[in-house]
Design a protein around this nucleic acid. Sequence first.
DNA 1: GGTGTTTTGAGGTACGCAACTCATTTTGAG
DNA 2: CTCAAAATGAGTTGCGTACCTCAAAACACC
Lengths: 346, 346
Amino acid sequence: MAETLTASALTLKDIAREAGVSLATVDRVLHNRPGVRPETVRRVKAAIERNSFQPHVAAAELARGRARRFAFVMPSGPNPFMQQIEAYLGEMSGWLSARRLGVEMVATDVFDPSVLAASLEALSGDYDGVAVVALDHPSVRAAINDLVDAGTQVVTLVSDVPSSRRHHYVGIDNIAAGRTAGALVGRLVGQKSGKVAIVAGSQGLRDHAERIFGFNQVMASEFPRLGVLPVLEGRDEDDRSEQLLARLLARHADIVGLYNVGAGTQGVAKALSDAGRDKVVFVGHDVTVLTRRLLLQGVMDAAISQNPGHEARAAVRVLLALARGEPILREQEKIRIDIVMRDNLP
Amino acid sequence: MAETLTASALTLKDIAREAGVSLATVDRVLHNRPGVRPETVRRVKAAIERNSFQPHVAAAELARGRARRFAFVMPSGPNPFMQQIEAYLGEMSGWLSARRLGVEMVATDVFDPSVLAASLEALSGDYDGVAVVALDHPSVRAAINDLVDAGTQVVTLVSDVPSSRRHHYVGIDNIAAGRTAGALVGRLVGQKSGKVAIVAGSQGLRDHAERIFGFNQVMASEFPRLGVLPVLEGRDEDDRSEQLLARLLARHADIVGLYNVGAGTQGVAKALSDAGRDKVVFVGHDVTVLTRRLLLQGVMDAAISQNPGHEARAAVRVLLALARGEPILREQEKIRIDIVMRDNLP
DNA sequence: GGTGTTTTGAGGTACGCAACTCATTTTGAG
DNA sequence: CTCAAAATGAGTTGCGTACCTCAAAACACC
């Protein structure tokens, strides 16, 4: 009837007694400090295992005294998505200070590898953990690895550097996101035939390229009757996206679907409405003030969202867990691909 | 460049000095213990505000000594959704015991108001917090209020009792979920005309009724060309759902969409395939082993999911925050309505 | 067997707060 | 002004761990 899921009111003292050693030795084992015979290490670890002992996180936190500092390395300039992340971190300030966690925002040009790498190197030693919106480039990879070697916990945020030794990636699977977008466009277009347009920031950006890849995968295999037009590179700018798309719409009267991979949403929407092509199925990314309005107006049909609030909080939680040596709740920290339509707007 | 989001390395001693009182008085104010003049209370609170002081959560936790106990009151019997919740709680066991939190599962017949109320009353005094899958009924409401009055933190899970004084509800907005289902069915059907069927457990269940309400709302206002057939009540049983639906399909050759509000998914799927009506747009709830397979096979087109893992963890976090007197991160604990299609299966 | 090295024990201090006691001061009512 | 009640100060103890020191014991090597 009543099944208990937890236990452990044991303390280190109990473990010491169990293992037949002193508190000091248990402490040495627990923090892999030198000066303990391998045999003794085994005995202590066995006792810990046997009782599935977990150090009392509050006591550990209190005892270490020193507060922890995390840095968030984010793109400079006005980027609504990043501003949201910052805002969500702000909402956590009570939570953070109750745990004596200091979180600092470091703005830098994340699109210039050497600048980003330099920014990262500059953090070394000052922080217990770093979350970074990273470009995948050799010098950035090296900078991340250096931080890791210096004992800093490193989490990549939104954009990953899989080849580095970062401890964790907080963000979505962009190929799956592209696939989802493809499935949505294809399904929402319905029985109609015609062409599908893609507007991206740049195919050089890893996340955009991956999304396009996934999108094309699905279109090719499941909606072959819909021809995909060459990708327009709008550099995430409204004006440029609008112009490119306007020209494309003028040339192709049979466009029935549109996938906006990155930003520039305002321009994309304007081009559509100026051309009187409101019926085109329009799928984009991220829920912002703008996309929210477009969804409510019916201009956009769906948005693929990666929940910036969740990403911000997950990054903090993961850094904290890593710093404390706690296990990470993978399920909890995984960023899901949200499909947002008008009726499930958050 | 580097903007700090947190502060507070202050201690109670600092606040005491600031307010010109002793530690004991600050302590009295902080825990609303009697014996402090209103004027002094104000001075102390002002000092706390002024410095935006947050008690060190680790120190507080350590000092109180006593471990916290939470109870999860859940339906007895085999219910995959509830089993998932339990499994997710199991995955947290390390996290829980590191915080000296005890979580116990209490199985009961949540569909019998008096039994459920009695189970709740029996918990009084033994637990710091209770999460309950609650039926909305006067005696249940009273039991919840009694718990609250006894100082127990109460959270309703999945199914709410809004008229009670529960501290929080962890679950989705079922009307919005129904609306989302309606929008999906309507959009995925495309240009076709025809009828839409609804299979529910029972219209007496609050959550099912709300979903149907939302569904009908959207169908009526946005897809008037699709006629909604009377609700089939399958009691969440496979066999019954199958029979009812089979009969309906035989009678109506023009069914183009189907909304399965509750369980009985297996039966619904069987009726569809036996009748050779695979093209019917099929939207249901929850991602389970079964619905996952149906989505991959293309039998189901979309599932509305409420992420049981998130619900389980949110319930624990909310109970803990309430017990500690910490603020709740509303954004974080809000359960979102996930649209799951084949390509964004978690 | 003696030497030097490694391993272990014992103990202390500090972390910030909760919870308590008891003495002292302040306050307000009469 | 007096006296009891209310308000406050001062202090203690303990929570479980980290981190440190110093001495004692065990060990390895020649």
